[in-house]
Design a protein around this nucleic acid. Structure first.
Lengths: 229, 229
DNA sequence: ACACTAAAGTCAGCCGCTGACAGTTGACAA
DNA sequence: TTGTCAACTGTCAGCGGCTGACTTTAGTGT
């Protein structure tokens, strides 16, 4: 298809139409998150969001398939980054270490990406709304398991296993996912919502993953730091 | 409150009113599950369910808070049994072993309870619908995490820990929950839907939980059976 | 037999969401 | 510039989940 000049190099300009769409979408996201964070999810109607951006309700649903979807626009970005990072890990690494390092190493990058879309503080407030709103929490967990499914396939391929016959890849990511969710929760309920704090919580929780599963632990948190290969 | 004769012993008769309510509720459950299993969840309206039992839509919503809720009526029974079983484990047992045995030991009992409400085969068909319907899957996962929260508190208390400062109880149940979900999925996608089959899958998956987390596993499924303390 | 009250029905209405149709506005070429 | 095409948006009508307010029905205890 003969497009004009614009030789195949860097994307020079997306065109006015495309830019307008982008602006509308971002405005909808920001308006929605602001409303969710202040008024709460249930007390925010789609009409409210549309009115705040001065578009029709119908238009909102052309950008987002549901009211839920707009709430997860930001987390989705983060998730896709994690998947990329996992794909890039070197072949020799042990499975759990792959997931661990993928998340921790790409953390700063993810934070930056999120922050240039919405303020990190708003992101936290929305996250609290998600955790405390049944419908949103449910959607969040479903998305999480879909991510786990994808990770399980990647891990299985790395190790040359069939994900449908060997349960270990799924078990690993299930355990990993559970731990991440614990860290997320501790982050959202705490008072330090910096990226560094979240990173710290993740590290601590992941360090517990092995020791927490065997034996009874009436002793102090075990002193063995994360085993490095 | 002076009730009539009916000396405080065994509940002699629940009264006609109460019996009618019970019958209506059970009818609604059975009709709903049958419709979900055949027509699918989305293609079944609440009016359909109400019509099948010949009550008004409003009445349906007096028995169940939502269309979702009726789909999870049976699983809820099973969950409460598991919680009971966990509470009854002897104090000395290691945390993971507590969960393991609670589920496995009470399995037959649970199956029996379920079966006297609806046929096991219908239960399986509905479970497949749940897994393949986004809205239901989300609700299922949310319920699961609520259960995990409860289990985490029980485990923490057993071990004399504070669930809000020590992450290990939550990490343990998160990993455990993930594994159970894997087993459930394999059960629902397989062709043997007997209780024994599910028990077998659970055993296998739980046996993998420790070994799956450490090191890389290109070798065969590790030969060490479940370590008994 | 009667009054009391829990349960069921009826009606109206909000909100999320969708299909169909019409109006508007960028994109591109003549 | 102008005209055509296609994309985007608005309007309208309607369905399904769900709720509040009110009326009617039907067990329950005296």
């Amino acid at each position: 298809m003969g497009t004009v000049g614009t030789a195949a190099g860097a994307p020079p300009r997306p065109g006015l139409r495309e830019r307008k769409k982008q602006r509308t979408r971002d405005s909808l996201v920001r308006a929605a998150l602001e409303l969710f964070a202040t008024r709460g999810y249930d007390r925010t109607t789609v009409d409210d969001i549309a009115a705040a951006v001065d578009v029709s309700q119908r238009t909102f649903f052309r950008y987002f398939a549901s009211k839920e979807e707009v709430a997860f626009f930001v987390p989705r970005l983060a998730e896709s980054r994690v998947v990329e990072a996992v794909r890039k890990r070197p072949p020799g690494e042990a499975p759990l270490e792959v997931l661990r390092r993928a998340v921790l190493d790409s953390w700063d990058d993810i934070t930056e990406t999120v922050e240039q879309l919405v303020p990190l503080e708003l992101h936290l407030r929305v996250y609290r709304v998600i955790e405390s709103t049944p419908a949103l929490l449910a959607a969040h967990l479903r998305r999480a398991t879909e991510l786990e499914e994808e990770l399980a396939r990647i891990v299985a391929e790395r190790e040359g296993l069939d994900v449908d016959t060997d349960p270990r890849p799924r078990i690993l990511v299930a355990a990993f996912g559970g731990v991440v969710r614990v860290a997320e929760r501790r982050w959202s309920t705490g008072d330090d919502f910096s990226a560094a704090a979240m990173r710290g919580l993740l590290t601590v929780c992941l360090d517990h993953v092995g020791p927490a599963l065997v034996g009874s632990w009436r002793t102090d948190p075990s002193p063995d730091r994360h085993r490095q290969t």
